[in-house]
Amino acid sequence: MENNVEPEYAIVTNDLSIHYGSYTAVKGVNVKVEKQKITAIIGPSGCGKSTLLRSFNRMNDFVPNCRVTGELLLQGQNLYSKDVDPVEARRRIGMVFQKPNPFPKSIYENIAWGARINGFKGNMDELVEQSLRGAALWEEVKDLLQKSAYELSGGQQQRLCIARTIAIQPEIILMDEPASALDPISTLRIEELMQELKKNYTIIIVTHNMQQAARASDYTAMMMIDDQRSGGVIEFDDTKKIFTRPKDKRTEDYVTGRFG
């Protein structure tokens, strides 16, 4: 099979736009997301960060009237071509949400369930342990595996959600403000965890927290709305450059805290 894309990119978008009915929420995004790196998406509220992120694993399929144009290429395959099975795609592209959303099941089942529906046939106990270790949660919950996930704290729940995502061994993990509902210590743990995870996964994270983007990410996409209220990526570069020598004046204003 011929690859149109250089292998080091996990996701390449070509003029990707997202529309709700006649309103264009995100317009003309062209980014190349490098493999095994952390890419942050920043920008003021309502600029379409989450909308863009959700288009990466076709979560926007569940939004009525939502339409996507342009291309989103995963190893050369367009995620939005008609013969793509979104269920299969989501198995390869995991997602961690803004608010921890563990299933109303035991801690063990939270991880085992996703693996089972994905056809995992190996040793489930081992997988659960590995995934919990991978999410830096094992030591805290190893004696509570049969307890409800809702007995955990918010930060633990979020790490459980990360654990269940890595249990299905995706290539890419999308994180939609994963630490915004957490206290600073839990936030720090999630950030440390991301550094660990990027050894094996490509991570794309939406964040409101500019320090977080500056601390944790390798690349940063700056988004902003235009005069038609459509969001777009106005600058995409090394995180260092974005935060020290941004090319766009609006980026500079935003990262220095002059607005947003």
Binding site: M59, F62, R90, R91, F97, N101, W113, R164, T165, I168
Partner: peptide, 10 residues
């Protein structure tokens, strides 16, 4: 979010 969590797991 519970449904989304499930869908996101494939």
């Amino acid at each position: 979010p519970l449904r989304e969590g499930a869908y996101a797991m494939g």
